[in-house]
Write a protein that binds this DNA or RNA. Structure first.
Lengths: 209, 209
DNA sequence: AATTCCAGAGAACAGTTGTTAACTGCATGG
DNA sequence: CCATGCAGTTAACAACTGTTCTCTGGAATT
Protein backbone atom coordinates (compact mmCIF):
# COMPACT_ATOMS: atom_id res chain seq x y z
CA UNK A 1 0.00 0.00 0.00
CA UNK A 2 1.25 3.50 -0.86
CA UNK A 3 1.40 5.73 2.17
CA UNK A 4 0.75 9.38 1.24
CA UNK A 5 3.94 11.37 1.51
CA UNK A 6 4.13 14.29 3.92
CA UNK A 7 4.44 17.82 2.53
CA UNK A 8 8.09 17.68 3.30
CA UNK A 9 9.01 14.44 1.50
CA UNK A 10 6.79 15.42 -1.40
CA UNK A 11 8.60 18.71 -1.92
CA UNK A 12 11.93 16.95 -1.70
CA UNK A 13 11.00 14.42 -4.36
CA UNK A 14 9.76 17.27 -6.53
CA UNK A 15 13.12 19.05 -6.41
CA UNK A 16 14.91 15.78 -6.97
CA UNK A 17 12.86 15.11 -10.08
CA UNK A 18 13.47 18.69 -11.25
CA UNK A 19 17.22 18.08 -10.95
CA UNK A 20 16.96 14.87 -12.97
CA UNK A 21 14.83 16.54 -15.66
CA UNK A 22 17.20 19.49 -15.94
CA UNK A 23 20.19 17.17 -16.17
CA UNK A 24 18.55 15.10 -18.87
CA UNK A 25 17.92 18.23 -20.91
CA UNK A 26 21.47 19.54 -20.45
CA UNK A 27 22.79 16.16 -21.55
CA UNK A 28 21.38 16.60 -25.03
CA UNK A 29 24.48 18.54 -26.01
CA UNK A 30 27.16 17.04 -23.78
CA UNK A 31 28.19 13.92 -21.88
CA UNK A 32 27.60 13.19 -18.22
CA UNK A 33 31.36 13.34 -17.75
CA UNK A 34 31.25 17.12 -18.34
CA UNK A 35 27.98 17.86 -16.58
CA UNK A 36 28.55 20.25 -13.71
CA UNK A 37 26.63 20.24 -10.45
CA UNK A 38 26.20 24.03 -10.54
CA UNK A 39 25.01 23.85 -14.12
CA UNK A 40 22.15 21.60 -13.06
CA UNK A 41 21.11 23.59 -9.98
CA UNK A 42 21.23 26.82 -12.01
CA UNK A 43 18.85 25.33 -14.57
CA UNK A 44 16.43 24.33 -11.81
CA UNK A 45 16.71 27.66 -10.00
CA UNK A 46 18.03 26.29 -6.74
CA UNK A 47 21.19 26.84 -4.70
CA UNK A 48 24.23 24.73 -5.67
CA UNK A 49 24.44 23.27 -2.18
CA UNK A 50 20.91 21.91 -2.42
CA UNK A 51 22.28 19.36 -4.88
CA UNK A 52 23.99 17.47 -2.06
CA UNK A 53 20.65 16.86 -0.33
CA UNK A 54 19.80 14.52 -3.22
CA UNK A 55 22.99 13.22 -4.85
CA UNK A 56 26.55 12.66 -3.78
CA UNK A 57 27.85 13.69 -7.21
CA UNK A 58 26.81 14.01 -10.84
CA UNK A 59 27.86 10.38 -11.29
CA UNK A 60 25.31 9.48 -8.63
CA UNK A 61 22.71 11.51 -10.50
CA UNK A 62 23.63 9.55 -13.62
CA UNK A 63 22.96 6.23 -11.92
CA UNK A 64 19.53 7.52 -10.84
CA UNK A 65 18.87 8.51 -14.45
CA UNK A 66 19.69 4.97 -15.58
CA UNK A 67 17.02 3.64 -13.23
CA UNK A 68 14.53 6.18 -14.50
CA UNK A 69 15.33 5.54 -18.15
CA UNK A 70 15.52 1.74 -18.10
CA UNK A 71 13.67 0.69 -14.99
CA UNK A 72 10.24 1.34 -16.43
CA UNK A 73 11.05 -0.54 -19.61
CA UNK A 74 10.79 -4.09 -18.29
CA UNK A 75 7.03 -4.58 -18.73
CA UNK A 76 7.32 -3.36 -22.30
CA UNK A 77 10.05 -5.85 -23.11
CA UNK A 78 7.84 -8.82 -22.47
CA UNK A 79 5.14 -7.70 -24.88
CA UNK A 80 7.79 -6.80 -27.46
CA UNK A 81 9.15 -10.30 -27.81
CA UNK A 82 5.96 -12.04 -26.81
CA UNK A 83 5.33 -15.19 -28.83
CA UNK A 84 1.94 -13.99 -30.06
CA UNK A 85 1.51 -13.71 -33.84
CA UNK A 86 3.75 -14.87 -36.65
CA UNK A 87 7.30 -13.66 -37.24
CA UNK A 88 6.43 -10.73 -39.51
CA UNK A 89 3.81 -9.48 -37.11
CA UNK A 90 6.16 -9.68 -34.15
CA UNK A 91 8.86 -7.76 -36.01
CA UNK A 92 6.41 -5.10 -37.10
CA UNK A 93 5.14 -4.78 -33.53
CA UNK A 94 8.63 -4.50 -32.07
CA UNK A 95 9.79 -1.79 -34.47
CA UNK A 96 6.58 0.14 -33.93
CA UNK A 97 7.00 -0.05 -30.16
CA UNK A 98 10.58 1.18 -30.35
CA UNK A 99 9.57 4.10 -32.56
CA UNK A 100 6.85 5.13 -30.13
CA UNK A 101 9.19 4.88 -27.18
CA UNK A 102 11.77 7.12 -28.85
CA UNK A 103 9.02 9.63 -29.61
CA UNK A 104 7.84 9.60 -26.00
CA UNK A 105 11.23 9.62 -24.24
CA UNK A 106 13.91 10.90 -26.63
CA UNK A 107 16.11 12.26 -23.82
CA UNK A 108 16.08 8.90 -22.05
CA UNK A 109 17.11 7.06 -25.20
CA UNK A 110 19.87 9.57 -25.96
CA UNK A 111 21.18 9.30 -22.42
CA UNK A 112 21.42 5.52 -22.49
CA UNK A 113 23.03 5.40 -25.93
CA UNK A 114 25.52 8.08 -24.94
CA UNK A 115 26.51 6.78 -21.53
CA UNK A 116 26.51 3.07 -22.31
CA UNK A 117 30.14 3.43 -23.35
CA UNK A 118 30.61 6.83 -21.70
CA UNK A 119 33.29 8.16 -19.40
CA UNK A 120 31.63 7.50 -16.02
CA UNK A 121 32.26 3.99 -14.73
CA UNK A 122 29.37 3.58 -12.23
CA UNK A 123 26.90 4.69 -14.90
CA UNK A 124 28.34 2.30 -17.47
CA UNK A 125 27.99 -0.52 -14.97
CA UNK A 126 24.42 0.42 -14.08
CA UNK A 127 23.46 0.37 -17.76
CA UNK A 128 25.27 -2.90 -18.35
CA UNK A 129 23.44 -4.51 -15.43
CA UNK A 130 20.04 -3.30 -16.57
CA UNK A 131 20.67 -4.48 -20.13
CA UNK A 132 21.76 -7.85 -18.79
CA UNK A 133 18.43 -8.06 -16.93
CA UNK A 134 16.65 -7.22 -20.17
CA UNK A 135 18.54 -9.91 -22.03
CA UNK A 136 17.69 -12.41 -19.31
CA UNK A 137 13.99 -11.62 -19.63
CA UNK A 138 14.16 -11.87 -23.41
CA UNK A 139 15.92 -15.22 -23.07
CA UNK A 140 13.16 -16.49 -20.78
CA UNK A 141 10.58 -15.35 -23.30
CA UNK A 142 12.43 -16.94 -26.22
CA UNK A 143 12.67 -20.21 -24.32
CA UNK A 144 8.88 -20.51 -24.39
CA UNK A 145 8.86 -20.52 -28.17
CA UNK A 146 8.82 -24.02 -29.75
CA UNK A 147 11.40 -22.72 -32.24
CA UNK A 148 13.89 -22.72 -29.37
CA UNK A 149 13.79 -26.50 -28.99
CA UNK A 150 17.31 -27.87 -28.90
CA UNK A 151 18.84 -24.52 -28.03
CA UNK A 152 21.27 -24.34 -25.14
CA UNK A 153 20.68 -21.67 -22.51
CA UNK A 154 23.93 -20.06 -23.51
CA UNK A 155 22.92 -19.79 -27.15
CA UNK A 156 19.53 -18.39 -26.17
CA UNK A 157 21.23 -15.72 -24.08
CA UNK A 158 23.49 -14.89 -26.99
CA UNK A 159 20.46 -14.41 -29.22
CA UNK A 160 18.71 -12.37 -26.52
CA UNK A 161 21.67 -10.00 -26.28
CA UNK A 162 21.65 -9.70 -30.05
CA UNK A 163 18.01 -8.62 -29.93
CA UNK A 164 18.65 -6.13 -27.12
CA UNK A 165 21.56 -4.64 -29.05
CA UNK A 166 19.38 -4.33 -32.12
CA UNK A 167 16.71 -2.63 -30.03
CA UNK A 168 19.18 -0.02 -28.82
CA UNK A 169 20.77 0.45 -32.21
CA UNK A 170 17.38 0.96 -33.80
CA UNK A 171 16.29 3.37 -31.09
CA UNK A 172 19.45 5.39 -31.69
CA UNK A 173 18.70 5.54 -35.42
CA UNK A 174 15.14 6.70 -34.76
CA UNK A 175 16.56 9.38 -32.48
CA UNK A 176 18.44 10.92 -35.39
CA UNK A 177 15.25 11.10 -37.43
CA UNK A 178 13.29 13.03 -34.79
CA UNK A 179 13.57 16.30 -36.66
CA UNK A 180 13.82 14.70 -40.09
CA UNK A 181 11.13 14.28 -42.79
CA UNK A 182 8.67 11.44 -42.46
CA UNK A 183 10.13 9.36 -45.29
CA UNK A 184 13.46 9.23 -43.45
CA UNK A 185 11.73 7.67 -40.46
CA UNK A 186 10.02 5.16 -42.75
CA UNK A 187 13.39 4.26 -44.24
CA UNK A 188 14.84 3.58 -40.77
CA UNK A 189 11.78 1.51 -39.84
CA UNK A 190 12.21 -0.57 -43.00
CA UNK A 191 15.91 -1.04 -42.28
CA UNK A 192 15.17 -2.17 -38.73
CA UNK A 193 12.58 -4.66 -39.95
CA UNK A 194 14.99 -6.19 -42.46
CA UNK A 195 17.72 -6.53 -39.85
CA UNK A 196 15.35 -8.29 -37.47
CA UNK A 197 14.11 -10.48 -40.29
CA UNK A 198 17.65 -11.57 -41.15
CA UNK A 199 18.40 -12.41 -37.52
CA UNK A 200 15.15 -14.34 -37.23
CA UNK A 201 16.11 -16.32 -40.35
CA UNK A 202 19.41 -17.19 -38.77
CA UNK A 203 17.54 -18.25 -35.67
CA UNK A 204 15.25 -20.56 -37.66
CA UNK A 205 18.20 -22.36 -39.23
CA UNK A 206 20.41 -22.49 -36.16
CA UNK A 207 22.04 -25.89 -36.01
CA UNK A 208 22.82 -25.78 -32.30
CA UNK A 209 26.38 -24.56 -31.89
CA UNK B 1 56.99 10.59 -53.37
CA UNK B 2 57.37 11.61 -49.74
CA UNK B 3 59.31 14.84 -49.45
CA UNK B 4 61.47 14.90 -46.30
CA UNK B 5 60.04 17.38 -43.82
CA UNK B 6 62.14 20.27 -42.62
CA UNK B 7 63.28 20.33 -38.99
CA UNK B 8 60.52 22.80 -38.31
CA UNK B 9 57.56 20.87 -39.74
CA UNK B 10 58.89 17.69 -38.19
CA UNK B 11 58.98 19.20 -34.71
CA UNK B 12 55.47 20.56 -35.21
CA UNK B 13 54.08 17.18 -36.20
CA UNK B 14 55.86 15.66 -33.23
CA UNK B 15 54.09 17.90 -30.70
CA UNK B 16 50.82 17.50 -32.55
CA UNK B 17 51.14 13.75 -32.21
CA UNK B 18 52.08 14.17 -28.55
CA UNK B 19 48.88 16.16 -28.00
CA UNK B 20 46.83 13.45 -29.67
CA UNK B 21 48.52 10.70 -27.66
CA UNK B 22 48.05 12.54 -24.38
CA UNK B 23 44.40 13.23 -25.19
CA UNK B 24 43.80 9.58 -26.04
CA UNK B 25 45.26 8.54 -22.71
CA UNK B 26 43.25 11.10 -20.75
CA UNK B 27 40.10 9.90 -22.51
CA UNK B 28 40.36 6.51 -20.85
CA UNK B 29 38.56 7.88 -17.83
CA UNK B 30 36.35 10.60 -19.29
CA UNK B 31 34.55 11.74 -22.42
CA UNK B 32 35.80 14.16 -25.02
CA UNK B 33 33.05 16.51 -23.93
CA UNK B 34 34.85 17.11 -20.64
CA UNK B 35 38.41 17.05 -21.94
CA UNK B 36 40.08 20.38 -21.26
CA UNK B 37 42.65 22.01 -23.49
CA UNK B 38 44.87 22.85 -20.55
CA UNK B 39 44.63 19.30 -19.30
CA UNK B 40 46.10 18.04 -22.55
CA UNK B 41 48.91 20.56 -22.80
CA UNK B 42 49.82 19.96 -19.16
CA UNK B 43 50.15 16.23 -19.84
CA UNK B 44 52.45 16.92 -22.78
CA UNK B 45 54.51 19.50 -20.90
CA UNK B 46 53.78 22.39 -23.19
CA UNK B 47 52.17 25.81 -22.76
CA UNK B 48 48.35 25.95 -23.02
CA UNK B 49 48.51 28.44 -25.87
CA UNK B 50 50.60 26.07 -27.96
CA UNK B 51 47.44 24.03 -28.38
CA UNK B 52 46.01 26.62 -30.77
CA UNK B 53 48.90 26.12 -33.19
CA UNK B 54 47.47 22.68 -33.91
CA UNK B 55 43.74 22.61 -33.12
CA UNK B 56 40.94 25.15 -32.98
CA UNK B 57 39.34 23.34 -30.02
CA UNK B 58 39.19 19.97 -28.29
CA UNK B 59 36.35 19.06 -30.64
CA UNK B 60 38.77 19.64 -33.51
CA UNK B 61 41.30 17.40 -31.77
CA UNK B 62 38.56 14.79 -31.52
CA UNK B 63 37.95 14.82 -35.25
CA UNK B 64 41.67 14.33 -35.83
CA UNK B 65 41.58 11.36 -33.45
CA UNK B 66 38.76 9.82 -35.47
CA UNK B 67 40.95 9.97 -38.57
CA UNK B 68 43.84 8.41 -36.68
CA UNK B 69 41.73 5.68 -35.13
CA UNK B 70 39.65 4.70 -38.14
CA UNK B 71 41.57 5.98 -41.14
CA UNK B 72 44.18 3.26 -41.00
CA UNK B 73 41.59 0.52 -40.67
CA UNK B 74 40.41 0.41 -44.28
CA UNK B 75 43.02 -1.98 -45.65
CA UNK B 76 42.29 -4.37 -42.79
CA UNK B 77 38.58 -4.39 -43.54
CA UNK B 78 39.06 -5.89 -46.97
CA UNK B 79 41.00 -8.87 -45.70
CA UNK B 80 38.53 -9.33 -42.86
CA UNK B 81 35.54 -9.97 -45.08
CA UNK B 82 37.51 -11.31 -47.99
CA UNK B 83 35.78 -14.19 -49.73
CA UNK B 84 38.71 -16.57 -49.20
CA UNK B 85 38.00 -19.73 -47.21
CA UNK B 86 34.72 -21.22 -46.06
CA UNK B 87 32.30 -19.53 -43.67
CA UNK B 88 33.76 -20.91 -40.44
CA UNK B 89 37.28 -19.96 -41.47
CA UNK B 90 36.23 -16.43 -42.37
CA UNK B 91 34.47 -15.97 -39.04
CA UNK B 92 37.45 -17.32 -37.13
CA UNK B 93 39.76 -14.98 -39.04
CA UNK B 94 37.54 -11.94 -38.44
CA UNK B 95 37.25 -12.49 -34.69
CA UNK B 96 40.98 -13.11 -34.44
CA UNK B 97 41.73 -9.90 -36.33
CA UNK B 98 39.45 -7.87 -34.09
CA UNK B 99 41.05 -9.30 -30.96
CA UNK B 100 44.51 -8.42 -32.21
CA UNK B 101 43.44 -4.92 -33.13
CA UNK B 102 42.00 -4.30 -29.65
CA UNK B 103 45.24 -5.55 -28.15
CA UNK B 104 47.30 -3.26 -30.34
CA UNK B 105 45.17 -0.09 -30.12
CA UNK B 106 42.91 -0.28 -27.04
CA UNK B 107 42.73 3.50 -26.63
CA UNK B 108 41.59 3.92 -30.24
CA UNK B 109 38.84 1.37 -29.81
CA UNK B 110 37.69 2.90 -26.55
CA UNK B 111 37.62 6.35 -28.10
CA UNK B 112 35.47 5.29 -31.05
CA UNK B 113 33.04 3.30 -28.92
CA UNK B 114 32.73 6.17 -26.46
CA UNK B 115 32.37 9.04 -28.89
CA UNK B 116 30.21 7.31 -31.50
CA UNK B 117 27.17 8.45 -29.54
CA UNK B 118 29.06 11.01 -27.47
CA UNK B 119 28.32 14.62 -26.67
CA UNK B 120 30.37 16.31 -29.41
CA UNK B 121 28.49 16.63 -32.68
CA UNK B 122 31.39 17.07 -35.17
CA UNK B 123 33.07 13.98 -33.74
CA UNK B 124 29.87 11.93 -33.95
CA UNK B 125 29.52 12.94 -37.58
CA UNK B 126 33.13 12.10 -38.39
CA UNK B 127 32.71 8.63 -36.90
CA UNK B 128 29.41 8.11 -38.69
CA UNK B 129 30.99 9.06 -42.02
CA UNK B 130 33.96 6.75 -41.54
CA UNK B 131 31.74 3.84 -40.52
CA UNK B 132 29.57 4.49 -43.58
CA UNK B 133 32.69 4.22 -45.71
CA UNK B 134 33.53 0.94 -44.01
CA UNK B 135 30.06 -0.40 -44.65
CA UNK B 136 30.33 0.63 -48.29
CA UNK B 137 33.60 -1.28 -48.65
CA UNK B 138 32.12 -4.33 -46.93
CA UNK B 139 29.12 -4.13 -49.24
CA UNK B 140 31.41 -4.08 -52.28
CA UNK B 141 33.25 -7.10 -50.93
CA UNK B 142 30.04 -8.97 -50.16
CA UNK B 143 28.78 -8.28 -53.67
CA UNK B 144 31.64 -10.36 -55.08
CA UNK B 145 30.44 -13.44 -53.22
CA UNK B 146 28.20 -15.77 -55.26
CA UNK B 147 25.99 -16.10 -52.16
CA UNK B 148 24.91 -12.51 -52.80
CA UNK B 149 23.20 -13.37 -56.09
CA UNK B 150 19.70 -11.92 -56.12
CA UNK B 151 20.47 -9.43 -53.36
CA UNK B 152 19.55 -5.79 -53.89
CA UNK B 153 22.23 -3.18 -53.23
CA UNK B 154 20.12 -1.85 -50.39
CA UNK B 155 19.91 -5.22 -48.68
CA UNK B 156 23.64 -5.75 -49.11
CA UNK B 157 24.32 -2.39 -47.47
CA UNK B 158 21.99 -3.35 -44.62
CA UNK B 159 23.95 -6.55 -44.09
CA UNK B 160 27.25 -4.67 -44.34
CA UNK B 161 26.18 -2.25 -41.60
CA UNK B 162 25.15 -5.21 -39.49
CA UNK B 163 28.64 -6.66 -39.86
CA UNK B 164 30.29 -3.33 -39.03
CA UNK B 165 28.12 -2.96 -35.94
CA UNK B 166 29.06 -6.45 -34.86
CA UNK B 167 32.70 -5.62 -35.36
CA UNK B 168 32.44 -2.61 -33.07
CA UNK B 169 30.34 -4.40 -30.51
CA UNK B 170 32.80 -7.26 -30.38
CA UNK B 171 35.76 -4.91 -30.13
CA UNK B 172 34.08 -3.19 -27.21
CA UNK B 173 33.59 -6.53 -25.48
CA UNK B 174 37.23 -7.47 -25.99
CA UNK B 175 38.18 -4.11 -24.51
CA UNK B 176 36.55 -5.04 -21.22
CA UNK B 177 38.55 -8.27 -21.07
CA UNK B 178 41.93 -6.56 -21.46
CA UNK B 179 42.78 -6.95 -17.79
CA UNK B 180 40.69 -10.09 -17.29
CA UNK B 181 41.80 -13.73 -17.17
CA UNK B 182 42.40 -15.56 -20.42
CA UNK B 183 39.28 -17.72 -20.22
CA UNK B 184 37.13 -14.59 -20.17
CA UNK B 185 38.66 -13.54 -23.46
CA UNK B 186 38.02 -16.98 -24.89
CA UNK B 187 34.40 -16.73 -23.80
CA UNK B 188 33.98 -13.41 -25.61
CA UNK B 189 35.65 -14.83 -28.71
CA UNK B 190 33.25 -17.76 -28.68
CA UNK B 191 30.29 -15.44 -28.24
CA UNK B 192 31.41 -13.28 -31.15
CA UNK B 193 31.82 -16.33 -33.39
CA UNK B 194 28.33 -17.58 -32.60
CA UNK B 195 26.80 -14.19 -33.31
CA UNK B 196 28.55 -13.99 -36.66
CA UNK B 197 27.53 -17.56 -37.44
CA UNK B 198 23.89 -16.76 -36.74
CA UNK B 199 24.00 -13.71 -38.99
CA UNK B 200 25.71 -15.71 -41.73
CA UNK B 201 22.95 -18.32 -41.46
CA UNK B 202 20.36 -15.59 -41.90
CA UNK B 203 22.30 -14.39 -44.89
CA UNK B 204 22.31 -17.83 -46.51
CA UNK B 205 18.53 -18.16 -46.25
CA UNK B 206 17.67 -14.57 -47.17
CA UNK B 207 14.70 -14.66 -49.48
CA UNK B 208 15.29 -11.24 -51.00
CA UNK B 209 13.21 -8.67 -49.14
C1' DA C 1 2.62 24.33 22.45
C1' DA C 2 7.41 23.42 22.57
C1' DT C 3 11.13 21.02 20.44
C1' DT C 4 13.64 18.66 16.94
C1' DC C 5 14.74 17.93 12.23
C1' DC C 6 16.17 19.04 7.70
C1' DA C 7 15.64 20.95 2.67
C1' DG C 8 17.40 24.70 0.91
C1' DA C 9 19.94 29.50 1.07
C1' DG C 10 24.00 32.30 1.41
C1' DA C 11 28.76 33.38 1.44
C1' DA C 12 33.29 32.34 0.92
C1' DC C 13 37.41 29.12 -0.43
C1' DA C 14 41.08 27.72 -3.56
C1' DG C 15 41.57 25.90 -7.91
C1' DT C 16 40.36 25.45 -12.54
C1' DT C 17 38.98 26.80 -17.22
C1' DG C 18 39.30 29.09 -22.37
C1' DT C 19 41.13 33.04 -24.64
C1' DT C 20 43.74 37.30 -25.58
C1' DA C 21 47.99 39.78 -26.10
C1' DA C 22 52.76 40.60 -26.62
C1' DC C 23 57.09 38.14 -26.44
C1' DT C 24 61.28 35.06 -27.89
C1' DG C 25 64.27 32.12 -30.31
C1' DC C 26 65.29 29.46 -34.11
C1' DA C 27 64.59 27.34 -38.83
C1' DT C 28 63.74 28.99 -43.26
C1' DG C 29 64.13 31.38 -47.89
C1' DG C 30 66.08 35.29 -50.38
C1' DC D 1 74.17 36.85 -44.00
C1' DC D 2 70.20 38.98 -43.14
C1' DA D 3 65.11 39.33 -42.92
C1' DT D 4 60.95 36.92 -42.45
C1' DG D 5 57.89 33.30 -40.56
C1' DC D 6 56.08 30.79 -37.04
C1' DA D 7 56.06 27.08 -33.03
C1' DG D 8 56.01 27.70 -28.49
C1' DT D 9 56.29 30.90 -24.04
C1' DT D 10 54.81 34.07 -20.53
C1' DA D 11 51.41 36.75 -18.13
C1' DA D 12 47.08 38.14 -17.21
C1' DC D 13 41.77 38.23 -17.66
C1' DA D 14 37.09 37.13 -16.13
C1' DA D 15 34.35 33.28 -15.48
C1' DC D 16 33.56 29.08 -13.77
C1' DT D 17 34.03 24.80 -10.86
C1' DG D 18 33.20 21.51 -6.36
C1' DT D 19 33.08 21.79 -1.50
C1' DT D 20 32.84 23.61 3.30
C1' DC D 21 30.55 26.05 6.99
C1' DT D 22 26.89 28.66 8.91
C1' DC D 23 22.25 29.95 8.96
C1' DT D 24 16.97 29.89 8.38
C1' DG D 25 12.22 28.82 8.06
C1' DG D 26 8.78 25.66 8.29
C1' DA D 27 7.26 20.76 8.60
C1' DA D 28 7.37 16.82 11.78
C1' DT D 29 7.36 14.92 16.26
C1' DT D 30 6.34 14.75 21.10
Amino acid sequence: MSHTLGIRQAQKQKTRQALQDAALQLLEEQSLSSLGLREVTRAVGVAPTAFYRHFRSTADLGVALVEEALGSLHPMIRTTVSTAGDSAERIERAVELIARHVDAYPAHVRFIARERHGGVQPVREAIRDQLARFAEEVRAELAKDPVSAGWSDDDLLMLAHLYVDQMLSTASLFLETLDAPEDERARVAGLARRRLRLISLGRLHWNGG
